[in-house]
């Protein structure tokens, strides 16, 4: 059981950001290099199915990073990012099927749509704070499948039938499998999004967001347009989730309503909490749980993974308030001591 007196400081999002307190710089660099090397060379040693799993893992990591960016920078929490993920997936699938646009180019379009949707939803929803906002976003997640099935959209979305997408081939005659190519594409997008997230947190905009997260009243007194920033960051986060959704459509080659229930939104939230709220590298750890726990748990009994995730959340709440970040900090302290 945790020490209640300390929790408030330890789980405070402000403790989770900036991303690297306590982690020795050299250790940080070494880990990053090793991680990148592993990520780059892994497909060479893995079977295609496992490469596909790793692609999914990176896709979830991007979606979770979207949440981390939102919560880490503005303190807002979304339980509705499955909606933006769905927007991205459908945008990519529809564009590929209807226009024959290059699949790489569907990503920015998906981001744009996600941004607009996030901005429009965020504008009224962000009048709520804390758990009430989470509830409003949760409402969005619950309604998403029904919206997709609406008559108006059915012609585009394929309704319950879903949409099939052709698998992109490795271009330029590269001597790698299609799965590996998709993996590298996802990895490249993931690195870009990660760098974008880091620079956003360190930019003027990021600082403004931090200010408004820590003290909205003071921030508005200093001339930060709080409502606008909150909505913008919500839009940016939605755009990133949308990119992840688009990648998932391309990778899985199939888009269907059932993939975008509120369970997805909750999974993303769990991934964020388990990885360490607001800690961008934690997205990778959280995504690993999201991808691999159901594989194992549901093999044992259908529905077990929900209980496992719930248990993981409780573990984080009561034992490891900063999730994987806490373990990373501890590890780096061990190495730093040498």
């Amino acid at each position: 059981m945790m020490d209640i007196g300390n929790t408030s400081t330890r789980t405070d999002p402000s403790a989770a950001i900036p991303a690297r307190p306590g982690i020795g710089a050299r250790f940080n660099v070494i880990v990053t290099i090793v991680l990148l090397l592993v990520l780059v060379f892994a497909p060479a040693f893995a079977k295609n199915f496992f490469v596909f799993q790793m692609t999914l893992w990176l896709i979830y990591a991007i979606a979770i990073l979207a949440l981390n960016l939102l919560t880490g920078s503005s303190g807002q929490v979304s339980l509705g990012h499955s909606a933006f993920y769905a927007i991205g997936a459908y945008t990519a699938a529809i564009l590929l099927n209807e226009t024959g646009l290059n699949y790489v180019l569907t990503l920015p379009v998906a981001a744009l749509f996600g941004f607009v949707a996030g901005f429009l939803f965020g504008f009224p929803a962000l009048r709520l704070t804390g758990v009430a906002l989470a509830m409003a976003t949760f409402a969005l997640a619950v309604a998403t499948p029904a919206i997709i099935k609406l008559h108006v959209f059915e012609e585009w979305t394929g309704g319950v039938q879903g949409l099939f997408v052709d698998k992109p081939r490795a271009p330029f005659g590269l001597p790698i499998s299609d799965d590996a190519w998709l993996y590298y594409l996802t990895l490249a997008v993931g690195v870009l999004v990660f760098l974008f997230g880091l620079s956003l947190l360190n930019s003027r905009t990021g600082r403004a967001c931090l200010a408004l997260r820590d003290n909205p009243i003071a921030a508005s007194a200093m001339g930060v347009n709080v409502a606008l920033y909150k909505t913008l960051i919500f839009g940016v986060s939605a755009a990133i989730a949308s990119i992840a959704g688009a990648l998932s459509a391309i990778a899985i080659q199939f888009v269907a309503v059932d993939s975008f229930t509120f369970h997805l939104a909750i999974l993303l939230f769990v991934g964020m909490v388990v990885g360490g709220i607001g800690w961008l590298p934690g997205s990778l750890v959280g995504a690993a749980f999201v991808v691999f726990v159901p594989n194992i748990a549901d093999g044992i009994s259908q529905g077990l993974s929900g209980a496992v995730f719930g248990g993981l959340l409780l573990l984080v709440i009561f034992v490891l308030p900063n999730g994987a970040k806490q373990i990373a900090t501890w590890l780096s302290a061990q190495f730093g001591a040498k």
């Binding site: 209640i4 929790t7 408030s8 789980t11 999002p13 929490v77 804390g130 959340l313 709440i317």
Partner: peptide, 10 residues
């Protein structure tokens, strides 16, 4: 006395 996020996770 925990912050909002902890409650939400709960």
């Amino acid at each position: 006395k925990a912050p909002v996020l902890t409650h939400l996770a709960g």
